[in-house]
Deep mutational scan, measured.
Amino acid sequence: KKVLATKVLGTVKWFNVRNGYGFINRNDTKEDVFVHQTAIKKNNPRKYLRSVGDGETVEFDVVEGEKGAEAANVTGPDGVPVEGSR
């Protein structure tokens, strides 16, 4: 997949743990970017399912997906594990 941007910060708009996807709002362009649970690189080690929490700040790369921009290599800021869904 073509990389459109790297090390982008954003805020998780919503994430559905059961369906394994959601959207992140980019801090720079204010665009919403699709995020799938497989894109989460560093999950909260205390959680079994990969997820990001609503309102959580995350860092990610933006790649060209089949339906437009999507997140890849999702971590917390500066590469720490994500907090995950509460």
Rank of each mutant, 00 (worst) to 15 (best):
K1H: 05
K1P: 04
K2A: 03
K2S: 03
K2G: 01
K2C: 00
L4Q: 06
L4A: 01
A5H: 07
A5L: 03
A5K: 09
T6A: 08
T6C: 07
K7V: 01
K7L: 03
K7S: 08
V8K: 01
V8M: 03
V8F: 02
V8I: 10
V8S: 03
V8R: 00
L9F: 05
L9D: 07
L9V: 13
L9R: 15
L9Y: 07
G10V: 00
T11E: 07
T11W: 08
T11H: 07
T11N: 04
T11L: 07
V12H: 00
V12G: 01
V12K: 00
K13W: 00
K13T: 07
W14K: 05
W14C: 06
W14G: 04
F15A: 05
F15M: 04
F15N: 06
F15E: 05
N16T: 03
N16K: 02
N16R: 03
N16A: 03
N16Y: 01
V17W: 09
R18D: 09
N19V: 10
N19G: 10
G20E: 04
G20H: 15
Y21E: 06
Y21P: 02
Y21N: 05
G22C: 01
I24G: 02
I24A: 02
N25S: 11
N27L: 09
N27Y: 07
N27A: 09
N27E: 08
N27I: 08
D28G: 02
D28E: 02
K30N: 10
E31D: 08
E31G: 03
D32K: 00
D32M: 02
V33T: 03
V33E: 04
F34D: 05
F34C: 05
F34R: 04
V35Q: 03
V35K: 01
V35P: 01
H36G: 05
Q37W: 15
Q37R: 15
Q37N: 09
Q37E: 12
T38D: 08
T38V: 05
T38F: 05
T38G: 08
A39D: 05
A39H: 05
A39G: 07
A39M: 07
I40P: 02
K41E: 09
K41A: 12
K42N: 14
K42D: 13
K42I: 15
N43T: 12
N43P: 14
N43E: 10
N43Q: 14
N43W: 14
N44M: 12
N44P: 09
P45I: 10
R46N: 13
R46H: 11
Y48M: 13
Y48V: 13
L49Y: 11
L49S: 14
L49V: 14
L49I: 11
L49Q: 14
R50E: 10
R50Q: 12
R50G: 09
R50F: 09
R50N: 15
S51N: 09
S51M: 10
S51P: 10
S51F: 12
V52W: 12
V52G: 06
G53F: 14
D54W: 11
G55E: 05
E56Y: 07
E56T: 11
V58L: 07
V58C: 05
V58K: 03
V58D: 02
V58H: 03
V58I: 07
V58T: 02
E59D: 06
E59K: 09
E59V: 14
F60M: 07
D61Y: 04
D61C: 00
D61H: 00
D61N: 06
V62T: 00
V62H: 04
V62P: 02
V63E: 04
V63W: 04
V63R: 03
V63Y: 06
E64H: 09
G65V: 01
G65E: 01
E66F: 08
E66R: 14
E66Y: 07
K67P: 03
K67D: 07
K67H: 11
K67E: 07
G68E: 04
G68V: 02
A69S: 09
E70K: 08
E70G: 01
A71N: 01
A71L: 00
A71Q: 00
A72H: 09
N73Q: 05
N73W: 01
N73G: 04
V74C: 00
V74W: 03
T75K: 09
G76F: 15
G76C: 15
P77V: 14
P77A: 11
D78A: 12
D78V: 13
V80L: 13
V80Q: 14
V80E: 12
P81F: 09
V82A: 12
E83G: 15
E83I: 14
E83S: 14
E83N: 12
G84A: 13
S85W: 11
S85Q: 12
S85G: 14
S85C: 13
R86H: 15
R86C: 11
